[in-house]
């Protein structure tokens, strides 16, 4: 049994195999693996006894349920107006340069994916970014780079 298979089995045991459990199960897979592979979605469909199209339909609707491979750390920088006014463009530029990728891409070592997001709910403390589930408000370029370097260091 592969890691993903075991993970799905555990999640189904924890949340049950009803249709209402689909979101927590998909969220659980993404929490561990950062994205949903075709194989994972097929396995979930089988476990819940629904069609794979239903699983893909749900997964593809939600921004955080990625169906394309992502890095170990997913960075989402808020791009909505107040964060824009407080300088999110400089943060994005700095991170693109540091990680040597553009927004939407993943580093070749699969450690980081850089994305933008709609309003993250920290408009009074922008610019702000989310890394996986952790939030980092009041960013400056220096602070953002420091945080990224810390992640790079910790996940080596």
């Amino acid at each position: 049994m592969s890691n993903t298979d075991a993970l799905i089995k555990n999640l189904v045991e924890k949340h049950g195999n009803s249709r209402n459990s689909l979101m927590p199960i998909l969220q659980g897979v993404v929490r561990e693996e950062r994205s949903l592979t075709e194989d994972a979605m097929l396995k979930v469909a089988e476990a819940l006894d629904i069609s794979a199209a239903e699983v893909y339909g749900t997964a593809s609707f939600y921004t955080f349920l990625d169906t394309i491979p992502r890095g170990k750390n997913v960075i989402r920088i808020c791009k909505t107006i107040t964060c824009h006014m407080k300088g999110k463009d400089e943060i994005i530029e700095a991170l693109e340069k540091e990680l040597n990728i553009n927004v939407g891409e993943t580093t070749s070592d699969k450690q980081f994916t850089l994305l933008t997001a709609n309003c993250l709910g920290w408009c009074h403390k922008g610019p702000v970014m989310l890394i996986n589930d952790e939030i980092y408000p009041d960013l400056t370029v220096e602070k953002a780079l420091e945080i990224i370097q810390e992640y790079a260091h910790n996940t080596k």
Binding site: M23, T58, F61, F64, C119
Partner: peptide
């Protein structure tokens, strides 16, 4: 608690129910 997964529209009450039922948030 049930978690969302990044969809503004799920703040609309009936979309929120759909999402809680494991469906697209329509």
């Amino acid at each position: 608690i049930k978690s969302g997964s990044g969809a503004y529209i799920c703040g609309e009450e009936s979309a929120l129910f759909e999402s809680m039922e494991g469906k697209r948030g329509e």
